[in-house]
Design a protein around this nucleic acid. Structure first.
Lengths: 192, 192
DNA sequence: AGCATGTGTTTTATCTGTAAAACACATGGT
DNA sequence: ACCATGTGTTTTACAGATAAAACACATGCT
């Protein structure tokens, strides 16, 4: 254990240490401060949004795993079962892939897994024999219905660190960002 | 701070709230609507925040991969190199693991990879022969310094779908959430 | 009917991350 | 000095994801 580095910024020679977000001490703010010290010319603004979204997502997913794992489910598995539950009808593997934002191959594996555990069932389409239809078994539906309230309660507890108005504002801003993002995402493929 | 848009349906129990979010048609809103139809009693509020954070993170990471992959880097690799660059000094594998929020084993593999490509170098500690010290090579530093501006420009372009005030509000709210989350995360292990 | 083409799904090869064990070494007590 | 214990790092075994190819079948053209 080297005792030489007690303070985060090792070489803050110039007095350009901005004070904007000293009160909210999150890790991303510290990282941004470091970058600004090394590259004073760069606009680090986007980091404060994107870095925090990524970090929040990582922390929240880790937290969400807790109630899910008690039910023996991974998050992708729960997403698949949830898609079947909330749509209320059968879905094909392709539809499930689109609904859960994962690849077709991943969906195939998950269906195989979940079928083996008796949570979903498959049947072939009678018209088009390429396609399959996947539906929840009774056990699968009961599992989802049992886990979802726990999941939501847990999420509510996690988000209770924010005031209700803050939660609403955050949901609104994220909705705006996400809506525009999902609409625009094809426009900047090779841009820069 | 206050959202300047129409108030998003935070706790609307009656099912006639379809119009508010018709303008911001994001996928999460549709999913939440489906869940409310199936389970009218559940408070789906947290989904609108957490679901959107997860979805935004997925979309943004996919987008960020573009400029990174042109440099032949994955995001975890860039995070490792970036940690070395922004701290300005050598880091041990353990420090790198903490700094990049990944496991020690993953860091070991990445270091091996990046060492093979000549982007980082290792040396053993002379005092404590268990620990290693990792530093950027000149090529590694140049690669980071070349990629970072592209990365930030790309992120700026992606975030330009939001107004500057919206970006600031979002960054502030996420900072608050993240700061509290990072502080509290140990308190609700088995809670519900 | 026969064939080219497109679509839905699965398989294969490969890669990355993780948990748990193994390993290497320092440290402190005796 | 010796040993028990703790810490930093690496290895191992394995689960999971992906891209690309393979596969099965429908559809439309001739």
């Amino acid at each position: 254990m080297t005792a030489t580095n007690g303070t985060p910024a090792a070489g803050d020679a110039s007095g350009t240490s901005a004070r904007h977000e000293a009160s909210t001490a999150d890790t991303v703010a510290a990282v941004v401060r470091q970058w600004r010290a090394v590259h004073p010319g760069l606009d680090t603004g986007p980091m404060e949004v994107i870095g925090r979204i990524n970090r929040c997502a990582a922390l929240l997913q880790q937290a969400e795993d807790a109630p899910l794992r008690r039910a023996g489910l991974s998050r992708p598995e729960f997403d698949l079962l949830g898609a079947l539950r909330r749509t209320g009808h059968e879905l094909t593997p392709g539809e499930l892939a689109r609904e859960t934002f994962s690849s077709g191959a991943a969906v195939t594996k998950r269906i195989k897994q979940l079928t083996g555990r008796g949570l979903v069932e498959r049947r072939g389409d009678t018209r088009d024999r390429r396609v399959a239809h996947v539906r929840l078994t009774d056990a699968g539906r009961e599992l989802v219905d049992g886990v979802l309230p726990e999941q939501l309660a847990y999420e509510t507890a996690v988000l209770s660190v924010l005031a209700p108005s803050g939660r609403a504002d955050l949901a609104g801003l994220l909705a705006e960002l996400l809506g525009r993002l999902e609409g625009t995402m094809g426009a900047l493929r090779a841009g820069g």
